[in-house]
Design a protein around this nucleic acid. Structure first.
Lengths: 113, 113
DNA sequence: CGGGATCCATTGCGATACTG
DNA sequence: CAGTATCGCAATGGATCCCG
């Protein structure tokens, strides 16, 4: 599902409009590994406040990147998982992961000198 | 050149720390096409203020992603180009571009229905 | 447990003016 | 041209309380 926003002319800007934000990228990273509960995300994303996490999750849900599933239990359980659209971002995160790994190798070398 | 910051354990977080920001990603996009002058970037990045552009350029320079070259002319000319480290981010931006293109196709289809 | 609602401090950022 | 400096507002985000 795609919700209309004004799409910028540049495709990169389009993508950046959806995930050009620290937390969204990290949320994506977490959810790539499978559905996550609110509390799990909150723990994993160190430093994020409940409010900001909620805001980002809502936004990503609106944009069709995430699927929110409520399990009618007591206590309530809510899971966030990747939609098909969200899953199509996997290569982007994968690239960032690979880049980060290489960067850390470089940083390690630079340190030992 | 790599400047030390505290590197997070997660490689994705490492990358996000350097470019997990709307403007930096768009600056990267612009500079991928070759060296750009300050004014060119300012025009291309619609909506950015001079201050924020300067701040981001400085930050990216500190992080070793960009190279800043001053030409001792009158009027002064300053060019920003990709360092080797910055250039290694090309695949990430490329992915985002491809994703944006596909997304726009989807959006177009959804509209015509 | 997973939020919604408030209130408030902090900051980000735009606008403007000035300079080498 | 490519900045730096300053000011002041608006928005972001943190903390807290409450609820289904």
């Amino acid at each position: 599902m795609i919700v209309k926003k004004d799409l910028p002319a540049c495709p990169v800007a389009t993508t950046v409009g959806l995930i050009g934000n620290k937390w969204k990228l990290l949320i994506l990273r977490d959810v790539l590994g499978g559905a996550k509960r609110f509390g799990e995300l909150h723990k994993s994303l160190e430093g994020i406040s409940q409010k900001v996490l909620t805001d980002n999750l809502r936004s990503m849900e609106e944009d069709g990147l995430l699927t929110r599933t409520v399990f009618p239990e007591v206590p309530p359980r809510v899971e966030y998982s990747l939609s098909r659209l969200g899953d199509s971002m996997r290569p982007i995160i994968k690239n960032m992961e690979e880049w980060g790994l290489k960067y850390k190798e470089l940083a390690a070398k630079a340190t030992q000198e």
